[in-house]
């Protein structure tokens, strides 16, 4: 089996597994919705700048929780089995793509619910939406590799937060700036720098993940 087939096969496996249980996705969805609701009850009315920051904080915690599972949920026996049938590159690529799909779906639902509960004028809704999609892709690429690293340690839940937050902060800074520009309805050409940096970081992270994952996998 070549790499492309392996990746396709593994992604289908992830989706089928998720579809059968629907445990992870529903859990995370409920997590996001209840967090938004808690924030709504706590804040009531909100400044635009806080609105934006709060949304990204909710997304940050939701995505950490969603992606931590991607390696932890699989037991050693099953991992050994994958090791015999697929190349490590195929495994990390399939995990990244699956997490991107999961995060895209999650962020769309979260954004819809969040703007339903908190009414806030957004200057350029389409561009804001694009920045949210870019953000969810970036979260997925960074957290996939880190969850792989954290899953090797004992206390992986706490470790995941410690390891991932400093790494995600630069992305988060750029994302908040990008979405703030969209919120203020600035001209789209202003934000091209940010999109370039986001794309650059994502490419670097995926490349480094591809190189490093075989070492992480070997045990």
């Amino acid at each position: 089996m070549n790499l492309l087939n392996q990746v396709k096969f593994l992604i289908r496996k992830e989706i089928v597994l998720e579809w059968r249980s629907k445990y992870a996705f529903n859990g995370i969805l409920l997590y996001v919705v209840s967090t938004v609701f808690v924030c709504f009850l706590a804040f009531k009315s909100i400044q635009p700048i806080t609105w934006n920051a709060l949304f990204w904080i909710i997304m940050l915690f939701a995505s950490v929780n969603a992606i931590t599972k991607s390696f932890v949920q699989e037991n050693r026996g099953r991992q050994l089995y994958y090791y015999t049938i697929a190349s490590p590159q195929a495994i990390i690529i399939s995990k990244i793509i699956y997490n991107i799909l999961l995060m895209l779906l999650l962020s769309v639902i979260a954004l819809a619910f969040y703007s339903l509960v908190f009414k806030n004028p957004v200057g350029d809704p389409l561009f804001y939406f694009i920045s949210v999609l870019l953000g969810s892709i970036s979260f997925a690429t960074v957290f996939t590799m880190i969850s792989g690293i954290a899953s090797k340690a004992h206390n992986s839940g706490a470790l995941m937060a410690i390891l991932s937050f400093p790494v995600i902060i630069p992305l988060l800074i750029v994302l908040i700036k990008l979405s703030k520009n969209a919120m203020d309805g600035l001209d789209r050409s202003v934000s091209m720098d940010e999109i370039g940096v986001l794309g650059g970081i994502n490419v670097i992270v995926i490349a480094v993940s591809l190189i490093l994952f075989p070492y992480l996998w070997r045990e």
């Binding site: 880190i146 400093p166 790494v167 970081i201 992270v205 993940s209 490093l212 070492y215 992480l216």
Partner: peptide, 10 residues
């Protein structure tokens, strides 16, 4: 070592 290499470009 893997985390160290991963964190450096960031």
């Amino acid at each position: 070592a893997i985390y160290n290499i991963f964190a450096f470009p960031v």
